[in-house]
Design a protein around this nucleic acid. Sequence first.
DNA 1: TTTTTTTTGAGGTACGCACCTCATTTTCTT
DNA 2: AAGAAAATGAGGTGCGTACCTCAAAAAAAA
Lengths: 348, 348
Amino acid sequence: MRPTVIDIAREAGVSLATVDRVLNERPGVREKTILAVSDAIAKLGYVRDMAAANLARQRNYRMAFVLPDTQSQFVQTLRAELAIASVAALAARTEIEVITFPSEDPHALAALLAELPEKAVAGVALMAPETPILRDAIKALRLRGISVVALVSDLPNTERDHFVGINNRAAGRTSAVLMGRFLGNGPQKVAVVAQSMLLREAVERRLGFDEVIGRDFPLVDVLPTLESHGSPDVLRRVVGEMLKQFSGVGGIYLLGSGHRALTQVIDDLGLTGQLVVIGHELTPHVRDALIAGKMAAVITQNVGHLVRSALRVLRAKTDKTPIDAGQEQLRIEIVLRENLPTGPEEQA
Amino acid sequence: MRPTVIDIAREAGVSLATVDRVLNERPGVREKTILAVSDAIAKLGYVRDMAAANLARQRNYRMAFVLPDTQSQFVQTLRAELAIASVAALAARTEIEVITFPSEDPHALAALLAELPEKAVAGVALMAPETPILRDAIKALRLRGISVVALVSDLPNTERDHFVGINNRAAGRTSAVLMGRFLGNGPQKVAVVAQSMLLREAVERRLGFDEVIGRDFPLVDVLPTLESHGSPDVLRRVVGEMLKQFSGVGGIYLLGSGHRALTQVIDDLGLTGQLVVIGHELTPHVRDALIAGKMAAVITQNVGHLVRSALRVLRAKTDKTPIDAGQEQLRIEIVLRENLPTGPEEQA
DNA sequence: TTTTTTTTGAGGTACGCACCTCATTTTCTT
DNA sequence: AAGAAAATGAGGTGCGTACCTCAAAAAAAA
């Protein structure tokens, strides 16, 4: 049988009340007795039953996920996974609240965060660009005992408790290896397309990409980044012009969104299958593009894992429980047509 | 506030005892009242608090993991992950027992499985080749209410509840795409090395590999499988002979274990960096080989996820709770040097 | 209708823990 | 040594659920 607090009390020769005081770090216990209890815990291998503890605590984990109002496929996927996780989380007395903020307005974001303490939120997962205002808002939350986790893109200079997401620079390096090897040996040009190089993720990926291409594939020439500024039309235009202007372009690396517009313009120019197209994030469109052979590979992170990991980390933080680093390490996934995850229904 | 059984009873106009009977599918309730209770549950959005339920049930999940006594790196990794999971599982009142069976003795395996009911085991995760004796043993376990999950390699013709692992044929296809693209355009030969083609996994991977090479890379010629029979010496000899005999061998596909011997013989012949070597399973040696550039890519499954998924599935089965297919779907992971998972200490 | 069977209700105990109060004991001050 | 302060003990209640018993009510069978 697993030892319980009663066993600890007996072993340590103290009362239940004292064990309780030690376990929950309540004041009024001598150092000496704390040691006695700790020894008993160690000796018996006691592990607190968190389920029972939380039941008694009447603890209802309210977790907020704060996301930008961007209409991108990625954020939509994230929302979908959150909806799924919400249902599962209910049985573990965890409520998920999704909060949307205007992506271009750091002040509005800070105002929304400032409201969280009143909502009795235990933790926040935050997907937002780092700004000075945000730094202060996070600091304020932490001071009020609310855990903060950075989601997807890190907030390294803030006091966030944890970062849940992948290393975008490593993701860029991974793309580069694939691009370089898929292109083959001859001299080639690679175009890089991004929504905007003001986005951290894009910059980091590009940095990693250039790093590896420069080091391992000297014959490959990476062209300057083309920016779409979020407009499919612009993307089509700039890529079209680029392809007409340069000869010897063998691959295109898409740093962010715009898969549809990109595969379309390649189709229009009759170049499908002749270019190595590599992008990020496995959305439904990208899935189709992989199956159709319009993209060679996608570097992605598992959004389901992302959400569950953020939830586990937030729970661990509010429970003051250690985090299993191995489990929370998100992988940089490479997806080709042949290892596309099958839908649930296809699995036996 | 979340509704509780008391709210359900009030809403349905029945007593607590009746709600309990319905929730736990106890006999002696009229269809009509079952409906009334179900309606109340739906109306109030009641979700059973599994933490409290399991606490009251005094349920201690004893799960057995039955593994072969093979000394392979993969099985060792699996054992290591099980050890880690054991600690974490304790807090969730789950005990893990690892049972080892002689890999060549199906009767001994069956005998071990037959002992499980006495041990009050709730579920079994099983990594073993399918035999008629095993089929019967699994059937017997299921009849006694013990859930059975096939681990790593499926047991499709048995009555196992679930399979936790990857599709090896798809893994072979994925290897083929990488091999084909990494080799480039010219005509090339690819050697395939396996421990033994009597192993299911090896056969399935080879099937998938041939399928894609044949379809998408007509210029690539796949040589007959070389078998090492588990001996590093044999592997070195046969691969060495092969490389001397055939010219134009551009790649080697390693279906199972033997990474060390393979990279060594390539080294000895001074061919490191000139051959595209692709293998399976990310063990420490393989990790080193990737970093040193002695292997180009590895197709693997996340053993940590494997273990946790098996545990979750077993728990769900014993709780008669639905399974989140998305979460339990194991990915076929492609690992290159650049997306090697960093150790826990490197993340921050 | 009476008897038998089936359903339902009422109430209790337990799970492992948190948190509270009040009395009692021990330790420290002066 | 007396008083003040700190530490500890004893005991209770409740969290949401499972599971048990026994009595009472309702429905079905005779």
